[in-house]
Design a protein around this nucleic acid. Structure first.
Lengths: 203, 203
DNA sequence: ATCATTCAATACTGATCGGTATATATACTG
DNA sequence: CAGTATATATACCGATCAGTATTGAATGAT
């Protein structure tokens, strides 16, 4: 086929960079949630007009899904690295320190986009909520498997259930996100993480 | 003064019970958040008209503050009891089991109103957010004091900082609320609580 | 019975929501 | 130079938001 022929451009080229615009949209959604971010908020931050946004991204929902992709690849990249750590404790530590960094970065909104989007979601945006939850469930499954492996390797006490310790670790991470969004300082959350690590189960 | 003279009633008496209406409003705010709950949602659930709502409760914000009062006294009554438990571990257990019960009751919305209201709050409702956070801060302070006492009594290991263990326990509770709101089953959260109790710090 | 007072129902306000129709400007292709 | 295709800008759409003006009904006090 002719799939790899040079894509000849027709018509007037767009005057803005979609990647930069998407990054700006991420900041807005991250700080205001899906429903809390109005098209006016978005277009002002992205520096484009409404029709440009719709031409480039489809609609508000499609734009949000693209920002979720960006958030995952750019801000949640620590998740993959955490799962590769050699021990359950190191996995947990990497998760918590990664979340801490991501949720309290000075130049960006505090808290976690996924938590904000799943909690602050009216029934009008139910499909958004399910999208976020589905993505979270996939990541969660990997963590369960990692904890199962850790127990198989004798790396986690036998009385600790992989599913349960995953729910537990997720709760700590989500709680951190809630507190970061509510204005907790990085130092406060650092001490929280240290405490969680202090009592992490071992033999 | 004449403050305690019999309050003679004038005019037509209202036809609805404000307590019942407030309880209905609580259900709506609890499941949709402050901004997510429209006046139409509220009046339909409360069984009254818009002008009746404004006459009886002031406005949406005042109504929400009154539902916060109701929520605290009726749904968060376990907090006071938890603080009275004899050991730090028993305090934590009472907190977690109380939250579990409150967040997964079958006849009511899942999750925690305070978490929903503080996370899902646009800047339009900043005063609401601050109100919720202020109430939470008061409760938090009591828990810090309780943990301090526990450490003074040798009930909590010395390397555990009262502030930090409070942040930690709060994170677990908030994480439970996030998961309950996202559809986690009661059994799942029960196992989470058991795991948290299993690793609760002791000598 | 009449008055004063309050409640309740309908219908409305201006503002904002997400989304779009229309018109014009700017590029590439031939 | 057309001719075509796409981007932008302005101005608008119906729906919904929180809140209210108006009107008529229901009560207690006189």
């Amino acid at each position: 086929m002719e799939a790899d022929t040079a894509p000849v451009q027709k018509g007037r080229p767009r005057e803005f960079c979609t990647d930069r615009a998407l990054a700006a949209a991420l900041q807005v959604f991250w700080s205001k949630g899906y429903e809390g971010a109005s098209l006016t908020d978005l277009t002002e931050a992205m520096g484009i007009t409404r029709p440009s946004l719709y031409a480039a991204f489809g609609n508000k929902e499609a734009l949000f899904r693209k920002t979720l992709d960006l958030y995952e690849t750019e801000k949640l990249d620590y998740v993959g690295k955490a799962l590769a750590e050699p021990t359950a404790r190191a996995v947990a530590e990497h998760f918590m320190r990664g979340a801490l960094e991501n949720q309290t970065r000075k130049s960006e909104p505090h808290g976690c986009l996924d938590v904000i989007a799943s909690v602050a979601c009216g029934e009008e945006a139910a499909s958004i909520r399910e999208e976020v939850l589905a993505r979270g469930a996939t990541a969660r499954r990997k963590l369960v498997e990692r904890m199962q492996r850790a127990r198989d390797e004798g790396d986690l006490p036998e009385q600790i259930d992989p599913e349960s310790i995953t729910s537990y670790l997720y709760a700590v991470l989500q709680g951190m996100a809630v507190q970061a969004g509510a204005g907790a300082s990085r130092e406060e959350l650092e001490r929280l993480v240290e405490t969680a690590l202090l009592i992490w189960p071992s033999h």
